[in-house]
Design a protein around this nucleic acid. Structure first.
Lengths: 368, 368
DNA sequence: CGCGTTATGGTAACCGGTGTCATTAATCTT
DNA sequence: AAGATTAATGACACCGGTTACCATAACGCG
């Protein structure tokens, strides 16, 4: 317990220069702080930047002033002097709205209140000036960090540009560096897509399915490769294999999933289940199945990937694989902002199977 | 045709100071341009900013240098001197990912290449410091403009804060200022939600529906009020009214739509059609109908609002109302960036009914 | 007690542009 | 042609912070 101070209460507002300053209602600058605290602006600057060589007493006094007059250093001025801004760039060419927004939320979870802001920058990989555009963007804005979303995060040229610019960046990706490809020395936030697909295969096989169709993503996408591999591994664990006759490549789109579903379901010995590499295509397969008069999951079980909003809203609700997108976004931002931590350069996130109503035991068939 | 110049070719690179500069491979500053063009940096500055009082000759000469050495003024430095950044802020509390991303795309359509960047800033209206947070954000970043998305765009306190800060801003909204409410003097981009809902009502009535259920949005949302009013007007044109017995309020969410659908469809004299104020709730009603064994559109026609991705992916595809979100975003950005144009302060966008497979003629019933 | 060291604060220059105002060049009067 | 006006340009301070470097105070030691 501290006793109340015994000093006479003096008229505070009249004499106190801080009060006087507050009356002027002007945005505080570092000079105001310095004047009120009776130190040089350099000292204030040291305190803002946590420089060690400041007496504790001084630091506290200055911090008190800063708090009272609500001083916040101007990011523009600071940025100019530091030769870097307090902006993070988010670069993507991904058309999936939910994915992007989840990622943004994760990043903003971390960024919020840190004085750093997020600048979004979608790009068009097919434009042949896109590398120049990104170079200009990053260089001109002097970004303090960049986050790359798939699929553009796999673009070697882009990675090289960012390395040349010496800007810290993190890639979000589905792919572990395997031993064949030259190792990527960049920070990355990796999702275990393979794991999720193994679980999907497991789940279907345990339900009694043996003939399982597969709608895969574009071969150019790292995630598509990973998901195929995971699915194959999952089947293999039960002595099964991907059957090319009931496999089709889609473009990760609803329409392509529909077409792939039609193709697969019109095969002579049609599968009792289909695994699609993303929800869009899975929902496309739904449509194909329903149009052919098949019931889901009675005649056909379907599993998707992404746990998009569609998955839970469609009827029957889609069994799918969920990735912790928001967590991944937050982690990506953390590695950029808390760089001094020198965190591990690769952070890995698990996938999880979300079982809903689109998967059921395989329909009974005659066995010879 | 111009004849080739008759002057002797001189060794260009050795003597040319521009070539020499380029060899140094350094980012160009305004001082470099000034030195190479043999003018003061102030003149270069004038040219960058399209100041009129520069001789055409000088302008061209300097622009040639700028182009050759690839000079681009530093936004940080410019921002500091101008006391404003070249950043647009996007503030929203809307959970609809597709809506946000469409809006971002529209804004970026305009912003791209203009040297202006987009900073995203979701906010939490329930936090009681949210106004302070936004004030800090806008003030500290010295944004050159702010775009407000609904529903937070209706928040009077927020509007007041932005007006105090004297930052240019545009509100995206569904609501015309009507004559009752105090007129809002801010720029706004308005969608004709009423019109879309009238069309929806028209469409259902023309298909023979007379008993039409209504799932409305939260009364606190401007869009919900507008949509209700539009729907009511559409019915009225055919001598019908909204029937409270088959009307329910939802929260614009899938689950609330499901519950509302259950409630409405379990009424004694159940409607042959339902209009829902957004797609999420419409899809919820789908689920309720299907669970009750009703077929869409055989037993029940459904119309939604938004034309979200769900609408076209669900089976049967949902008839809905589309808003030109991306165009609205682009327009919002335009009003902020091309301010000198002094465009109209209110820009209005039409809604359009998208007829798909969830609406069909009303089932025949006995008429006494 | 004098001296070298270290901690701390001050000064000036700078980051890369802009505003203000004075100066010079070009054009207009009469 | 000389003076008045107007247009084009430049010098210099400034935006709000930073770093580099120097000056002073505090401290430890022989």
């Amino acid at each position: 317990m501290t006793l109340p101070p015994q000093t006479q209460p003096v008229k505070p507002s009249a004499a106190d220069p801080v009060e006087e300053f507050l009356k002027r209602r002007k945005k505080a600058t570092i000079n105001d702080v310095a004047a009120l605290a009776r130190v040089s602006k350099k000292t204030v600057s040291r305190i803002i930047n946590n420089s060690p060589s400041v007496r504790e007493e001084t630091r506290e006094a200055v911090n008190a002033i800063i708090a009272r007059i609500g001083f916040r250093p101007d990011p523009q001025a600071r940025g100019l002097a530091f030769r870097r801004s307090f902006l993070l760039g988010l670069i993507y060419d991904n058309p999936n709205a939910q994915y992007i927004v989840n990622m943004q939320m994760g990043i903003l979870d971390k960024v919020r209140g840190s004085g750093i802001e997020l600048v979004v920058h979608p790009c068009d990989k097919t434009s042949d000036s896109f590398l120049e555009e990104i170079r200009d963007f990053v260089e001109l804005q002097r970004l303090s960090g960049v986050i790359l979303l798939p699929p553009i995060a796999e673009n070697r040229q882009l990675i090289q540009v960012l390395e040349e610019l010496a800007v810290p960046f993190v890639r979000i990706t589905a792919r572990h560096g395997d031993d064949n490809s030259p190792p990527i020395k960049t920070s990355q936030v990796v999702s275990r897509d393979r794991m999720g697909c193994q679980q999907a295969a497991d789940h279907l096989v345990e339900l009694g399915h043996r003939r399982i169709g597969f709608i895969e993503g574009p071969h150019t996408y790292a995630s598509a490769k990973e998901r195929r591999q995971g699915f194959a591994e999952g089947l293999k664990a039960h002595g099964l294999d991907i059957d090319p006759a009931i496999t089709a490549e889609g473009a990760y789109s609803f329409e392509s999933g529909f077409e792939a579903g039609q193709k697969i379901l019109s095969q002579p010995d049609r599968p009792t289940a289909i695994f699609a590499s993303n929800d869009e295509m899975a929902i496309g397969a739904y449509k194909a199945a329903l149009q052919m008069g098949l019931s889901v999951p009675g005649d056909l079980s379907i599993i998707g990937f992404d746990d998009s909003p569609l998955a839970s809203r469609i009827y029957p609700a889609l069994t799918t694989v969920r990735l912790p997108i928001r967590d991944m976004g937050r982690t990506a931002a953390e590695t950029l902002i808390d760089q001094d931590n020198h965190r591990k350069h690769t952070m890995i996130f698990d996938a999880a199977l979300v079982v809903r109503d689109s998967t059921a035991p395989a329909p009974k068939t005659f066995k010879p």
